[in-house]
Design a protein around this nucleic acid. Sequence first.
DNA 1: CCTTGACCTTCCAGTAACTGGAGGCTTTAT
DNA 2: ATAAAGCCTCCAGTTACTGGAAGGTCAAGG
Lengths: 132, 132
Amino acid sequence: MNIGFASSRSGLPKKTIRYYEEIDLVNPSRAANGYRDYSEDDIHCLNFIHRARNLGFSIEECRLLLSLYQDKNRSSSEVKSLALSKISSIEEKIAELQNMKDMLNKLARTCHGNDKPDCPILDEIAGARLNP
Amino acid sequence: MNIGFASSRSGLPKKTIRYYEEIDLVNPSRAANGYRDYSEDDIHCLNFIHRARNLGFSIEECRLLLSLYQDKNRSSSEVKSLALSKISSIEEKIAELQNMKDMLNKLARTCHGNDKPDCPILDEIAGARLNP
DNA sequence: CCTTGACCTTCCAGTAACTGGAGGCTTTAT
DNA sequence: ATAAAGCCTCCAGTTACTGGAAGGTCAAGG
């Protein structure tokens, strides 16, 4: 099946699917006219990648997951540790964003938000007296 | 003062400071020998940007904040609304990450993590039966 | 005066993961 | 026959830097 169909079957944009071929992630065969020709297996891989990306795995992690997925001798612990380390890096990101949010909230609360130039937000950013 | 000093005064890498000049964010004057020569005002701007970046503002948002900061006729509401919209986009990101984390946790809990190939994580990614 | 090392300069390339567009085939439908 | 839709490749741009090469400048020591 050609790329448009592969795109609707996988939910990935055509551009992205071509990109995945360029980086050697999913390599479809080619039809006589030069069009990409995706097999059911290829679609399966695209779906797999799509879901792993939604779980926050990077492309390189997806490549690894895919190779584990296709390796009948894999150990599940390898996959689990990848998942766990991904969880902790997500937790770090959340904490960092939470910090930003708290600080911005603190700033926004003190700002009147009127048409006067007087702005505690800018003052604080300029002076870095967020936590005196 | 030259770039090394500006770097230690602002806490930004020299490369980053040069980049900020390249994109017209902070334009120092030049000494006779061609070296960049940062004024106190320039340092102040660099610090301002450094802190705004840490609060999660993009470069373009920093540019705007900086121009507001230097505009004596600004209205504080403009700054406040920027802060508020940043807060809500941070909240969105947090929610998304929280979702990823929950799903990964759900997956990791069901995986034995031993040396057998049997892996519910991969099975779920492959089949997308996360929320049946 | 010369050298050494620490500065500084510019320019080019690379990162992650796509996305958009130009220019040009092929297929399908009317 | 022709128009629209779909496909192809290649190039450039996105964000915010980061690393490195090749080379100029400056201060200290011998």
